[in-house]
């Protein structure tokens, strides 16, 4: 089970992040998780949103370059060592992580969500499921 992540190319100049977030806000798109990878000249803003199609279309209309990637949203226990367990499951199966970032914490059931980008999505899914981890679907994510 995977979720869609949007990546937006942003030049390093004042006002760009502000523009992206405002455009999404005005389109009533809710950002569930994000991370920004930056270099000297540009950044890639990675977004998990409640309505991917609307977000991508709106950003493109406004002249942004956007691409979609399948990533995993893993539910882990919000306790010391929770993340380490998930990493171990991947490491044991020799799966390398391209990047990851944390999404949100659910205080009701003490769980946290982690966005994972791996090279081989299907083997990562098997590894995590076998180790007892729950992978969130797009629908579930939109509903959270």
């Amino acid at each position: 089970m995977t979720v869609k992540q949007l990546s937006v190319f942003i030049e390093n100049r004042p006002g760009r992040l502000s523009a992206v977030t405002r455009i999404l806000g005005d389109a009533q798109v809710n950002i569930r998780a994000m991370s920004l990878a930056d270099t000297k000249d540009f950044g890639i803003l990675r977004l998990i949103v409640d309505d991917c199609e609307k977000a991508a279309a709106t950003l493109k209309e406004n002249g942004f370059s956007v691409t979609a990637t399948q990533v995993l949203a893993v539910k882990i226990n919000d306790r010391p060592g929770g993340l380490a367990d998930a990493m171990k499951a991947l490491y044991d199966d020799n799966i390398s992580v391209e990047y990851m970032y944390s999404a949100f914490i659910n205080t009701e059931d003490n769980t946290a969500y982690l966005i994972l980008r791996v090279e081989n999505v299907s083997s990562a899914q098997v590894a995590l499921s076998d180790a007892g981890f729950f992978l969130t679907s797009q629908e579930e994510l939109s509903g959270i």
Binding site: S7, F9, A37, R46, S65, V66
Partner: peptide
């Protein structure tokens, strides 16, 4: 850049 040239990694 266009969408085809973009990827999610730096």
């Amino acid at each position: 850049l266009n969408d085809d040239m973009l990827s999610d990694t730096v």
